[in-house]
């Protein structure tokens, strides 16, 4: 359940990142249309919320949110490293 929480956080943060033109452009070599950007933003937020629920299941109702914030930080750090050091698939 904690792994699920982490993966949801990773996906959610990635989606929110891709809703930004500079990251979408880096990965897909073209900017996202406005509607898709908005959809990415909100689905990202939803996934992050689901991640919190999973964390509360995996730990406990009180410790869950604490663990969730830690997982978010870890996921964000991994995405930052990926964005910095990996090259996106060529067009």
């Amino acid at each position: 359940m904690i792994i699920a929480s982490f993966l949801l956080a990773l996906a959610g943060l990635a989606a929110m990142g891709l809703s930004q033109p500079q990251h979408h452009g880096w990965l897909f070599h073209r900017p996202a249309p406005k509607m898709q950007s908005v959809r990415l933003h909100w689905s990202g937020l939803t996934l992050i919320l689901l991640s919190l629920i999973a964390a509360m299941q995996g730990w406990s109702a009180t410790i869950g949110p604490v663990g969730w914030l830690g997982l978010l930080s870890l996921a964000a750090a991994l995405l930052l490293l990926a964005r910095t050091y990996l090259s996106p698939p060529r067009r």
Binding site: V66, G67, G70
Partner: peptide, 21 residues
């Protein structure tokens, strides 16, 4: 929350990595 003695191994590692950050 500060002492983190409640943390299991996974959470303790998250605390530790955040603290290194």
């Amino acid at each position: 929350l500060h002492a983190g003695r409640f943390a299991d191994l996974t959470l303790r590692w998250l605390y530790f990595l955040s603290s290194i950050a």
